[in-house]
């Protein structure tokens, strides 16, 4: 509550004050020495703190990758846990540099909030979870149900659409904080818990008896989740966007955390460009492959990213394997998925 009010105020006055501040986010970030990254308040697999406040997850690793690209050090990042309602305001007001908080890319968010989505780090869709004892096998049987969800999300909107489209009734029970939503569901305040399907698989692990709950087969929406930056700073937007593409390209070219040093010696020109290697020609001339300068970074920006967090496949494996989530739509394009990066050249 307190933070929310502060943020609301910050949005009013921050918008006024952050005039020159956000014009060059890269300079700001370099000056303060770390990337301030907005994450969730705890979602296993995406951004979750342990008891020592060490954050892990796909969204967290993305922030680390940005820090690695900028500083060559993946640890130069600080995390701001935000709830769904605060997140965009926090970014608009300049209190964070990048928002990497399983946020769905929609047209209105992309065009009216003064923000830009930099890519889709995870293709998700909204699902439903019910207690097994409810005896429901499909979302079409949910007529009249009470549904718990979080306010200020696309989930809330999809839910209304889905029940309206299927001519079913429901009663919404919505809270600002995810913990409140989970508590209400576990206490039986509602019959159904809905969020992105990856979130359902992650949250059920926190329950005392995960086996007593089941995820219904229907996916009722497209939820492309990705990092967000402020509009109007093309350089920072490019850094974040190309950090994501670098992760994908590294996986596609087989560059991993373990072999990145060795790969610097590769004769494959694509890898040479990816890793920004200076090529020495037999005639004594050399040619640089410095693509980092286009975004204001050093030539070894991708080397730093991969050294820091690995490639996209490694990040996915490290964070989402525990949730038993398959690559599915998040496999690379050449393996039947949707993850596709423009080439570095």
């Amino acid at each position: 509550m307190k933070t929310f009010k502060t943020l609301a105020l910050a949005s009013v006055f921050g918008l006024a004050a952050a005039a020159t501040a956000s014009a060059a986010t890269l300079d700001d970030v370099k000056a303060k020495g770390f990337v301030q990254c907005g994450v969730s308040q705890g979602l296993i697999g995406f951004s979750n703190p342990d008891d020592q406040n060490n954050w892990t997850g796909l969204d967290v690793d993305f922030c680390k990758a940005v820090a690695a690209a900028v500083f060559g050090d993946a640890t130069k990042v600080k995390f701001s846990p935000l709830n769904a309602k605060e997140r965009f305001t926090a970014l608009q007001s300049g209190s964070i540099d990048v928002l990497s908080r399983n946020s769905t890319w929609t047209m209105s968010r992309d065009t009216t909030l003064g923000l830009s989505f930099a890519g889709v780090t995870y293709y998700d869709g909204q699902g439903f979870m019910v207690p097994t004892k409810l005896g429901v096998k499909s979302a079409t049987e949910l007529n009249g149900a009470s549904v718990c969800t979080q306010t200020g999300t696309t989930t809330e909107l999809n839910l209304a659409d889905y029940f309206k489209a299927n001519k079913m009734e429901y009663k919404i029970v919505a809270f600002e904080k995810n913990e409140e939503v989970l508590k209400a569901y576990q206490e039986g305040r509602c019959d159904v818990f809905t969020t992105d399907q990856s979130g359902l698989y992650a949250e059920v692990l926190k329950f005392p008896n995960p086996a007593d709950h089941m995820v219904l087969p229907e996916i009722i929406s497209k939820e492309p989740l990705g990092p967000v930056v402020r509009q109007g700073d093309a350089q920072w937007f490019n850094i974040v966007k190309w950090t994501y593409y670098a992760l994908l390209n590294a996986e596609e070219l087989g560059v991993t955390q373990a072999n990145v040093e060795e790969m610097k010696g590769s004769a494959n020109p694509e890898i040479q460009r990816l890793l920004g290697v200076n090529v020495k020609n037999p005639d004594g001339t050399d040619a640089d492959n410095d693509f980092g300068k286009g975004i204001g970074l050093g030539p070894d920006w991708v080397v730093n990213i991969v050294k820091g967090v690995g490639n996209y496949g490694e990040v996915f494996e490290r964070n989402l394997a525990q949730l038993k989530i398959a690559r599915g739509k998040n496999a690379l394009w050449n393996q039947g998925g949707l993850q596709y990066a423009p080439p570095i050249r």
């Binding site: 009013v12 769904a84 209105s108 306010t151 200020g152 809270f175 409140e180």
Partner: peptide, 25 residues
Amino acid sequence: LAVAIGFPDLMYAGGTVNNQSGAAI
């Protein structure tokens, strides 16, 4: 303070409208 327990009062509705429309001010 209704916001905390999800009772849709003015502050709750305002917060949600702000979040869905982006018109904070």
